[in-house]
């Protein structure tokens, strides 16, 4: 067990290291200079600027300085916003993203669970087809298309919720709903197939044969066992939430990390782009690591055999 966790941890560190290296070299390869008006700067000014950002040293030195700073949590200065560090920019943006991401996860899991359970218990009935259809819609319609459409119909046409911006709690509802669609679909599909599988297991037959009431069989035996593998979809879902925030924050003008990221791409603020890239990647890799470990702890049937 601890050997497995250690192995996963080492993989996590290797992957992180590779991403750090890729982002560093990508940053050097990017076209254009990071300064906002390079043609207006004189040679001397450029030299001072380069020295300030450490761009005058050899590449290898820059790389190790970068690694060293990174370990200390220093991602450098933003090229576009004067005097702000990248960490500072990220920290000031993280709140709204975490709020809508977290809400989307909660809404998505609850609705997805309900749909999936209905689907499995009423297998091959109109209820089942209905929730499968909703799940297919949720899987298929791109989140930004859905976001734009609900913004138009709920925000502009009906006026039930604020169209965009970030001036209170009600502003977070529509972005959260738009983000939750894929979570609903994924969880519903997953719960449905897991429950159908568990319903056919011998221990469910045994439980029924013992005369336990149907509710107890479903809740204690079926649902509990069907819920364990749902942990595995948390990883992919956190990626899609992350992907979703990039466009959905842009659509609803939410001042979060995703909006900052798309903004930084447009104004070539490379250090912020790389900072957010690293932040997202590290978060994602850590979630995958946690999910892998958690899954083994939750389900003792998983054999930790070595692959290959």
């Amino acid at each position: 067990m601890s050997k497995y966790i250690l192995q996963r941890f080492i993989y996590m560190m290797i992957t992180l290291f590779i991403i750090v290296t890729i982002t560093f070299f990508v940053m050097r390869l990017l076209p254009g200079t990071p300064f906002s008006n390079p043609e207006k700067l004189s040679e001397a000014q450029l030299e001072i600027m380069n020295a300030k950002y450490g761009l005058d040293k050899p590449l290898a030195v820059q790389y190790f300085t970068y690694l060293g700073n990174l370990v200390q949590g220093d991602l450098g200065l933003s090229f576009q916003s004067q005097g702000r560090t990248v960490i500072n920019v990220i920290a000031s943006r993280i709140g709204p993203s975490a709020l809508i991401g977290g809400q989307a996860m909660i809404i998505g899991f609850i609705i997805g669970l309900v749909l999936g359970v209905i689907s499995a218990l009423k297998h091959n009935t109109i209820y089942d087809y209905g929730s499968v259809f909703i799940a297919v819609l949720g899987m298929s319609i791109p989140s930004f298309v859905f976001a734009a459409l609900i913004q138009y119909f709920i925000g502009v046409k009906l006026g039930w919720l604020p169209v965009a911006l970030w001036e209170g709690y009600s502003y977070s509802i529509m972005p959260s709903i738009a983000l939750s669609v894929l979570v609903i679909a994924t969880v519903a599909r997953f719960i449905r197939s897991e429950m159908l599988e568990v319903l056919g297991q011998d221990y469910v037959l045994t439980a029924r044969a013992k005369g336990i009431s149907e509710e107890v069989v479903i809740i204690r035996h079926v649902l509990r066992n069907a819920l364990i593998p749902v942990v595995t979809v948390v990883g992919p879902l956190s990626v899609s939430i992350m992907t979703g925030t990039l466009v959905i924050e842009k659509i609803f003008a939410v001042p979060g990390l995703g909006e900052q990221f798309t903004l930084s791409i447009l104004v070539n603020d490379y250090s912020v782009i790389m900072g957010i890239t690293l932040f997202f990647s590290a978060l994602f890799i850590f979630v995958i690591f946690l999910v892998d470990v958690l899954y083994v702890i939750l389900d003792p049937r998983i054999k930790l055999k070595r692959e290959g």
């Binding site: 993989y11 996590m12 290797i14 992957t15 590779i18 991403i19 890729i22 982002t23 990508v26 390869l29 990017l30 076209p31 990626v239 992350m242 992907t243 990039l246 791409i265 782009i273 890239t277 997202f280 990647s281 994602f284 890799i285 995958i288």
Partner: peptide
């Protein structure tokens, strides 16, 4: 295993930026 660990959207965006 290492490639799977990298969020693909991020790689795609970096690639297009270069």
């Amino acid at each position: 295993e290492i490639l799977v660990g990298i969020p693909n959207l991020i790689l795609i965006i970096l690639f297009i930026l270069i």
